[in-house]
Design a protein around this nucleic acid. Structure first.
Lengths: 253, 253
DNA sequence: AAGAAATCTTGACCCAGATCAAGCGGTGAA
DNA sequence: TTCACCGCTTGATCTGGGTCAAGATTTCTT
């Protein structure tokens, strides 16, 4: 089994300080020596594959997980075997923050495409943050950012129609890929139409029709999982609700 | 102006250690001496009235706010002057956590009924948490809980129909009031039908019709803002989707 | 390489809930 | 006390997008 050797070499090479994601991830804004302290508690496993679970709903909460490469979806069970996709997670994004409070995972996380994942035992991280103020601050920011994102999603599900939702989804992906040094205009989807629809509160058929329509309208080129965005400004205009959302009136005090 | 005196007497009496909410709020699980340290940084203003703003979207983030008595709504602007109600906040609940990351409030908070509010300057709280591990832990828990709640709301907006949404809303209020020592079955709504609809992603008319229907079905008694829940089990059954939600199928790996 | 099983697309139809419209209290200002 | 306004209810109608159905592709098995 020479594989053990390969893995251990790998885990040296991929230390946080060498990671291209460090500006997006937990180490953001940390001093070099503090990054090394963080590095000491991070566990890096061999790559996981499509369909593998990072954790399941009901599992005891032990660690946070950070996507290093690849992508992951999180989802919660709804009634009677259905599920609600809660998010798609790209490199640098943290998974599991919602479980700190209850100490049990309320959602499951499943690998979408072959991925490398960093595991961060939470108890050790918490100790570390008590001694590194900038890391504590970073944790507050990450938790807060997660709340903001959920808030954006509430607005999307509460007020936007189908085409606004899909446009918002595409632009969100585009921007997040761009921050990671990838093309914002040309990318592959790692999730199915079904999963996109589930995430956006739409039926698969609606997603499919919208892809077709957006393509007809020259907003994008779709070939199976391969997406090319041709008209960002038009997509942005759609999200802003140029095509009208619901409930434009205020509530008086 | 003898009012100054009254206020300052008041602010002694209402210290966290005497507050009936301390088991729900930030002081939860803290040692007595640590509660006092927390107390030192909490500011208590005179009561605010319906329509007053705690903060507005775009304001610089300085403090977290905790409802002591009364209730508050938070809402984000959607496109073209509309708004999305993000939450209704009862005594013991913390407002403003979503602004830590960006350092600017992305939503507004407005008083629904005469309320007493505790203000906690965040910079000072952050210093304190770095020195009180149990307070740091409590902060992580509170942030995490906020994420879980948003997640529940995503499921509600993504998968539940109108009656499931309203039933879930009523039960959530009922449970939260119960935890605060109030009746879970008999209470007054501090928000309008319009605000409820906005929050749940429904039109006012739908909310109104559902109140009427729930009453006809013997689930509750409605008199204007006065609510009496008559059949909790039936409401719970509704939320669980006995009347069927959407998308019960799984997505294969 | 052939068959089986998903995934995706497209068309036809339908319905939950939005929108439009009208009327009814309740509440507050003068 | 009256009037005006706002919040709420109820009815009538409309529609975005869900559901059902049928193929077309693609991808997994063996």
């Amino acid at each position: 089994m020479s594989q053990r050797t390969v893995i251990s070499l790998e885990s040296i090479r991929v230390a946080c300080k060498n990671c291209t994601l460090s500006s997006l991830c937990l180490p953001m804004g940390l001093a070099q020596e503090d990054v090394e302290r963080l590095d000491d508690i991070v566990k890096r496993a061999r790559p996981l594959h499509r369909g593998d679970f990072l954790f399941r709903e009901g599992d005891k909460f032990r660690s946070l997980y950070v996507v290093k490469t690849g992508s992951v979806k999180t989802f919660a069970p709804s009634q009677e075997g259905g599920e609600q996709v809660l998010g798609f997670h790209l490199p640098g994004e943290i998974i599991g923050l919602d479980a700190i409070d209850k100490d049990v995972h309320a959602c499951s996380a499943r690998i979408l495409e072959t991925s490398a994942i960093c595991e961060i035992p939470f108890a050790r991280l918490e100790d570390l943050t008590a001694n590194i103020p900038s890391l504590q601050h970073q944790m507050y920011r990450l938790l807060s950012k997660e709340i903001s994102q959920d808030t954006d999603m509430l607005l999307l599900l509460g007020k936007k129609n189908a085409e606004e939702r899909l446009a918002a989804f595409l632009l969100s992906l585009s921007q997040r890929l761009h921050k990671r040094g990838l093309s914002p205009l040309d990318f592959y989807l790692s999730m199915s139409r079904h999963e996109i629809g589930n995430y956006l509160g739409l039926a698969v058929e609606t997603v499919s029709r919208l892809f077709t329509r957006f393509q007809e309208d020259g907003l994008m080129q779709v070939d199976r999982k391969h997406i090319q965005l041709l008209d960002l400004p038009a997509l942005e205009a759609l999200v802003k609700g140029v095509g009208q959302g619901r409930d434009k009136q205020q509530q008086p005090g």
